[in-house]
Design a protein around this nucleic acid. Sequence first.
DNA 1: TGGCTGTTGTGATTTGAATCATAATCAGCA
DNA 2: TGCTGATTATGATTCAAATCACAACAGCCA
Lengths: 197, 197
Amino acid sequence: MVDTDILLALGAAYKQVQAGEYIFREGSVASFYHQLVSGRVRWSNFDESGKEFIHNLIEGGESFGELPIFDGEPYAANAVADEDCVMLRLHIPVFKQLLTEQPELHFEFSRLLAQRLRFKFVLSKELGSHNPESSILALLKHLKARRKNVCSDCTRINLTRQQIANMTGLRVETVIRTMRNLHDKGKLQIEKGKVYC
Amino acid sequence: MVDTDILLALGAAYKQVQAGEYIFREGSVASFYHQLVSGRVRWSNFDESGKEFIHNLIEGGESFGELPIFDGEPYAANAVADEDCVMLRLHIPVFKQLLTEQPELHFEFSRLLAQRLRFKFVLSKELGSHNPESSILALLKHLKARRKNVCSDCTRINLTRQQIANMTGLRVETVIRTMRNLHDKGKLQIEKGKVYC
DNA sequence: TGGCTGTTGTGATTTGAATCATAATCAGCA
DNA sequence: TGCTGATTATGATTCAAATCACAACAGCCA
């Protein structure tokens, strides 16, 4: 989101993490603004029974973990490297100073928060409807619109059924069965197990 | 959120609506920043089957309908006057100009977005867990922390079971039974039907 | 005071997603 | 090419929330 040169000029540092490593944990206090350079970060919570709920799969170029920067509370979820990752980290006070000096950049981040919130609005509404079809379609529609987690030059969804299950609170089997139904109804295409929409 | 005098000086106008009237509808384009002076506004969507999902019950002093201001998309939900309401409205360009000139105020709104998003994080996680007890407790905990929809000088929850049902995607009967269980477990108090926590 | 409306409360039944079990495919790789 | 682990697929069963039906109660006001 922020130009790499600007971040580096302000003293941001690169950090590498291997797949599976935690970048930060739910409940811990934030010190940095994080921007992913390459790899994929899984942003998730675990409930009492140990089931993982994935809020977002962050890809190269995106920032993550912004909530504590703006509301001063601890992290709301865990960030785990889903693949080997490279990221840039900038101390929060420096980042906030940057936003103060560049109102357009601040508006960029307000836009980001608003977009994330809008998605949560739609998804929470669908989760509340207890209708697997509409939950899955809402998720896919969102991903497609944001060109997230899709093949860069086609319409193939880059997520496993398990990941979709973990993003909607459903079970793999339910996701598999529901997506087959959606395929039969023509609302998405499945070829050799790969999903296109 | 914004000082009333400042809003008026910038040309904001008062608007009154009667209980039940729509202030704006899902999908329509936004022109104003809205700030509630008195009354209560219901922020909700209807799903295909006509069931209402309430995202928020806005009370005096709060702003609402900020998403389109920041991401430029249409309204994500309906705003209906839950009681007779008085609100202040300011044209969006003027409002954004104000934020540009006052970075601290802009940070206030970033904080608001972050808080709303944090709540959605928690709630969507709970909705995904398909556990009525934790969904209801998460909602009540949030309301208590924000001192929202509670009696001003006690701990009585100012919501009906139906409203709680509409905010969690559950059914009234499930909410009633689950809250009785929570009462029996000592996790909240019910006296003459009124809920304290 | 009684009647009306909205809310809370409770039982019986249904339903669909979770769960359990197990098979079929696919992708990566030696 | 064949092996291996991850992913997709499918059938049978269970279980909890939705649904349906109706009773009890509280608050309001004519």
